[in-house]
Design a protein around this nucleic acid. Structure first.
Lengths: 157, 157
DNA sequence: TATTTTTAGTTTGATATCGAACTAAAAACC
DNA sequence: GGTTTTTAGTTCGATATCAAACTAAAAATA
């Protein structure tokens, strides 16, 4: 590792991305009410954009979380009245998650609350370059995503 | 939000960073043995580089996690025999975490296991641009970090 | 059509993570 | 020097998260 400059650079990149992600999540969480978490907001945000007929399993796949995690998250959102869960008429095993009016209102409220922070970031000197790098980040994401599905290696002691 | 292009861009950037972080963490976790998690590896990695006289609280601050989380993580690492915890001779409240030989060996082993993945990433087309963007990412991190300490806003219903 | 396999969601048990309360020790202050 | 405040670590209770086992339903297949 120490002698492989390229791998070293990639390691630093992931480290930076991880830290940034933590800081951003903490910042977002600070703005959400009660025990609501960024992951819950993300679900609402996703339902807002592509929200017709999504099942819990669909959502779990989109966010790459486990089914139970999604079960819990949905239960939380139901407690808040932000989503309703219906039986899927096309599949007896499955359910349909649908945003409520309250959920939609919450999403708008949260978005509004985020704008000042986002604008601050966007006004920062470093931001122009990061905007420029966004396609590259997306490409890297797709690369890792593809890897995830094909890679079956495990640790060998 | 919808009409604020800059904030929108910042939102997309954070979204991409979050997804990348999740994918990278999942990829790293897949290579770690047992119940060891990336966060544990990060602690070991940190101790390797700046590892003299670090207290649990120091580590919690570095990784911006809660003290209890660090207490648990250290307990886990102790179970694996990767660290030792000693009393701090200079401060009766405090302790010192020190990497063991096994911990050092594990760190090297894990690093070696990561190199193929990291090299794949580094060999990717998009990587050059991301390397170039690394300083900007660091700047953004520092910006968020400073914000974190000064920002006291909370949600208002 | 009957059996097998796959899939959706839940349950169970474990770890990760947080915030708040608690204890003990250090530091600050008077 | 004694009191107050801050700090380090732990304990406690809650949520987040995962993997594996389980149930029921759909799909594949024979």
């Amino acid at each position: 590792m120490q002698r492989d400059g390229a791998a070293q650079q990639a390691f630093l990149l992931f480290k930076e991305i991880t830290i940034l992600s933590q800081l951003a999540a903490a910042e977002f969480n600070r703005m959400l009410p009660g025990s609501l978490h960024v992951s819950h907001f993300s679900i609402i945000e996703h339902l807002t954009r592509c929200g017709h007929g999504q099942t819990p399993q669909d959502l779990a796949r989109v966010f790459q979380m486990s089914k139970q995690n999604m079960t819990n998250s949905i239960a939380q959102l139901r407690n808040y009245g932000f989503v309703e869960v219906h039986n899927n008429p096309n599949d007896g095993r499955s359910k349909i998650v649908r945003l409520t009016e309250d959920g939609h209102a919450f999403r708008n409220q949260a978005m509004t609350a985020l704008v000042p922070m986002l604008s601050d970031v966007a006004a920062h000197d470093a931001f122009a370059e990061l905007t420029h790098a966004l396609p590259a980040l997306q490409t890297l994401r797709e690369f890792l995503d593809a890897r995830r599905q094909s890679d079956t290696r495990t640790w060998s002691t």
